[in-house]
């Protein structure tokens, strides 16, 4: 406990400083983000990881700004890595000592096709409509480029 207190008080300012930067950033959506100095942490995310994250997140990220914010989040998270947690179990849920509720096997829901389809922008004959699947994003960029050069 004492060890933790020492570490914490020492890092307090650093943590708070980074927290300030990060949490304020989240409110700057309508303004241009200012460049952040992260001299004390040298966090770099490589291209492959970034590409992987783009594929896994399926959100287009404004590459320079997005990368900066990501690296900053990681730097912020890195502060806790060296805190001693030996012999501590993860707290997955505050309800870890409760038992999950078991429902009886009876049909109580469904039979509401209209409700299910109500908010869908595109439907056909009561199906949801999706484009063809499983074409990785990178292929799309290449294909589109080809289309552009052709036309």
């Amino acid at each position: 406990m004492n060890y933790i207190s020492t570490i914490i008080s020492y890092n307090k300012l650093q943590i708070i400083k980074s927290a300030v930067r990060n949490l304020c950033l989240k409110n700057l959506s309508t303004r241009q983000a200012q460049p952040i100095d992260h001299k004390e942490e040298n966090v770099r995310v490589d291209k492959n990881t970034l590409a992987l994250l783009e594929r896994l997140s399926l959100v287009k990220c404004d590459s320079t700004e997005g990368l900066t914010v990501l690296e900053d989040s990681i730097a912020f998270a890195n502060k806790i890595l060296h805190i001693n947690t030996d012999n501590v179990d993860p707290l997955y849920s505050v309800l870890e000592n409760e038992n999950v509720y078991l429902r009886n096997d009876v049909v109580t829901q469904g039979d509401c096709q209209k409700d299910i389809l109500k908010n869908a922008v595109l439907k056909e004959d009561d199906y949801f409509v999706a484009p063809p699947g499983n074409i990785p994003l990178q292929e799309i960029q290449i294909d589109k480029k080809e289309q552009e050069t052709k036309s």
Binding site: I116, V121, L122, P131, P132, N134, I135, L137, I140
Partner: peptide
């Protein structure tokens, strides 16, 4: 965007959409 929510106009692939 499939079952609800904003749906863009892409139809090339599910990933793009």
């Amino acid at each position: 965007g499939l079952e609800y929510g904003l749906r863009a106009n892409e139809d090339y692939s599910t990933e793009e959409l």
